[in-house]
Amino acid sequence: MTRTRTLGVTAVAGAGALLALGVAPASAADTATVSVLHAVPDTPVDVYADGERLIDDFRPGTLTDPLQLPAGSYDVALFPADAADGSGTPLVSANGVSVPAGANATVVAHLTEAGQPVLTPFVNDTSAVPAGQGRVVVRHTAAAPAVDVRAGGQVVAPGLANPNEAALTVPAGTVSADVVLAGTDTVALGPADLTVTEGATTVVYAWGSQDAGYELAVQTIGGPGSAPSGVPGGTAGLVDGAADDAGLPLPLLGLSALGLLGAGVAARRLATTRA
Score class of each variant (00 low, 15 high):
residue 36 V to E: 03
residue 40 V to M: 05
residue 47 V to L: 03
residue 26 A to I: 11
residue 30 D to G: 09
residue 48 Y to F: 04
residue 41 P to V: 02
residue 32 A to P: 09
residue 17 A to V: 02
residue 33 T to K: 07
residue 37 L to G: 00
residue 29 A to F: 09
residue 43 T to N: 03
residue 23 V to Y: 08
residue 38 H to C: 04
residue 48 Y to M: 01
residue 18 L to M: 09
residue 29 A to D: 05
residue 44 P to M: 08
residue 44 P to S: 05
residue 28 A to N: 04
residue 38 H to S: 09
residue 32 A to Q: 08
residue 49 A to P: 05
residue 35 S to N: 08
residue 19 L to N: 15
residue 45 V to Q: 02
residue 31 T to I: 11
residue 19 L to M: 12
residue 36 V to A: 08
residue 39 A to Q: 06
residue 17 A to S: 11
residue 37 L to R: 00
residue 30 D to A: 13
residue 19 L to T: 15
residue 31 T to G: 07
residue 40 V to I: 10
residue 38 H to D: 07
residue 23 V to A: 14
residue 42 D to I: 01
residue 31 T to W: 03
residue 41 P to N: 05
residue 26 A to M: 12
residue 21 L to N: 09
residue 25 P to M: 08
residue 23 V to K: 14
residue 46 D to E: 02
residue 23 V to H: 14
residue 21 L to D: 12
residue 32 A to G: 12
residue 30 D to E: 15
residue 28 A to I: 03
residue 22 G to R: 10
residue 37 L to W: 00
residue 37 L to N: 01
residue 23 V to M: 14
residue 30 D to V: 07
residue 41 P to S: 05
residue 32 A to M: 14
residue 26 A to N: 12
residue 29 A to S: 09
residue 22 G to Q: 12
residue 37 L to Y: 02
residue 27 S to K: 12
residue 47 V to C: 05
residue 40 V to Q: 02
residue 25 P to K: 08
residue 45 V to L: 07
residue 25 P to N: 09
residue 48 Y to A: 00
residue 43 T to I: 02
residue 36 V to M: 13
residue 44 P to C: 03
residue 24 A to D: 11
residue 43 T to R: 03
residue 23 V to I: 14
residue 17 A to H: 04
residue 36 V to T: 15
residue 34 V to S: 11
residue 32 A to W: 15
residue 34 V to E: 06
residue 31 T to C: 05
residue 27 S to Y: 15
residue 22 G to A: 11
residue 17 A to Q: 04
residue 42 D to Q: 02
residue 25 P to G: 10
residue 37 L to D: 00
residue 25 P to S: 09
residue 39 A to P: 03
residue 28 A to M: 07
residue 33 T to L: 10
residue 35 S to A: 07
residue 44 P to R: 03
residue 20 A to I: 13
residue 31 T to V: 15
residue 42 D to F: 02
residue 22 G to F: 09
residue 36 V to N: 08
residue 41 P to A: 04
residue 18 L to G: 15
residue 44 P to D: 05
residue 47 V to Y: 01
residue 34 V to M: 14
residue 19 L to F: 13
residue 21 L to E: 12
residue 37 L to T: 00
residue 18 L to K: 04
residue 21 L to P: 15
residue 23 V to R: 14
residue 18 L to S: 14
residue 38 H to Q: 15
residue 22 G to T: 14
residue 31 T to S: 09
residue 24 A to P: 08
residue 36 V to D: 10
residue 48 Y to T: 01
residue 46 D to L: 00
residue 38 H to V: 08
residue 39 A to V: 06
residue 27 S to F: 15
residue 40 V to T: 07
residue 18 L to Y: 05
residue 35 S to L: 06
residue 48 Y to N: 01
residue 47 V to G: 01
residue 32 A to E: 10
residue 23 V to G: 13
residue 27 S to G: 10
residue 27 S to D: 13
residue 36 V to F: 12
residue 41 P to I: 01
residue 27 S to R: 14
residue 33 T to E: 09
